[in-house]
């Protein structure tokens, strides 16, 4: 007992001493005339090598090129999402960004409470009212949406052209409208270049767990490959790692999603359908900086470079030039509006 009290005293003494230590350069960032941006990631979002990291990249670029001051908040639990947004809004940020569709409700509410702060939601889920009309977000809230179906269309065409077996595969995560969008675009793309092709689409499950099940992903991919499929596109989070694993095992090809996933299985990743989250975030910050920010729905498609597919030095060898030319032509047609890509099954 006495020993513990003594220990407590010593600890407190050390602590008090530390309170007076001030390392050089340590200072809480103060608000100046630069644009102040706050970004709230999703739970465990940072480091996902996908759109959370994409948002970080966009913010980093804004710091570099626009001199923006950016503060990042990583929530520790669900109720911290709102708390994080609120904290940033209350501190007088010029722009507050929530990364992920899960921020939808919180952003809508806070945008009303803080009319002088600009808000943006990556993958913001726009609601529809009972008549089916789109509910417009508040004036100070930008919904940053991506036309994943357009990017998926191109990789669908790619899969059919490179696969050469009249069969292409798709592995989805959770069986939900969000992922159906990927499937619909992919299917349309494959059928567009190869009308007699068959698209085999399977889902890993009906719960969010289906996005975190590489074992299931490998299982589905193996059976698809064995049925004659040569290329599989996945939209399934880390479940897709199993798809790449299967591709590597059977020397077939996989197509990544959201970010460039080449490194997951070098040589067996044909391409990736990438979402330009960084570009969207950078764009939102830039608008605020230039004082031309307005709320509303922002769709990032092929035209805005919001979605696309990876074609670089690493996967060049896997994609013949003729295919590349064909894809670029398709891209131009979509941008010109001559091809309309469906977003539902």
């Amino acid at each position: 007992m006495r020993k513990l009290l003594a220990l407590l005293g010593v600890l407190l003494a050390i602590h008090v001493a530390f309170l007076f230590v001030r390392p050089a350069g340590a200072a809480l960032p103060a608000t100046a005339d630069a644009v102040d941006v706050g970004i709230v990631f999703d739970l465990g979002g940072r480091g996902d090598k996908s759109f959370n990291d994409g948002a970080y990249l966009g913010a980093e670029r804004a710091m570099r090129e626009l001199g923006a001051r950016v503060r990042f908040v990583e929530p520790g639990e669900g109720s911290d999402r709102e708390a994080g947004l609120r904290l940033l809004a209350a501190e007088g940020m010029d722009l507050v960004i929530g990364v992920g569709f899960i921020f939808t409700d919180d952003l809508s509410q806070l945008a009303l409470e803080y009319p002088n702060v600009a808000f943006a939601g990556v993958d913001f889920a726009v609601g529809v009212d009972s008549t089916g009309a789109v509910i417009q977000p508040p004036k100070n809230l930008a919904a940053l949406k991506f036309r994943e179906e357009q990017g998926s269309f191109l990789v669908g065409a790619l899969a059919a052209l490179v696969g050469g077996s009249k069969k292409v595969g798709f592995v989805g995560g959770m069986d939900s409208p969000l992922i159906h969008k990927f499937e619909a675009g992919y299917r349309a793309g494959a059928m567009h270049v190869c009308p007699d092709c068959e698209v085999i689409a399977q889902y890993a499950g009906v719960t969010p767990e289906a996005f975190r099940n590489p074992g299931r992903g490998k299982e589905l991919a193996l059976s698809q490959f064995q049925s004659g499929v040569n290329v599989i596109y996945h939209a399934s989070g880390s479940t897709g790692l199993g798809v790449f694993e299967a591709a590597r095992t059977l020397k077939k090809l996989g197509i990544g999603v959201d970010a460039d996933q080449y490194n997951e299985a070098p040589g067996y990743v044909l391409s990736s359908m990438v979402k330009g989250v960084d570009a969207a975030v950078f764009d939102a910050i830039k608008r605020v900086k230039e004082q031309r920010f307005v709320g509303g729905i922002y769709q990032f498609g092929l035209a805005e470079n919001g979605v696309g597919y990876v074609y670089d030095a690493r996967n060049k060898a896997l994609i013949p030039d003729s295919v590349r030319t064909r894809l670029e032509a398709l891209r131009a047609e979509i941008i010109a509006g001559r091809i309309t890509v469906p977003s539902t099954r």
């Binding site: 530390f18 230590v21 001030r22 390392p23 340590a26 200072a27 809480l28």
Partner: peptide
């Protein structure tokens, strides 16, 4: 690199 006093 931060000051404990400020952070606390």
């Amino acid at each position: 690199g931060q000051a404990p006093g400020d952070v606390w």
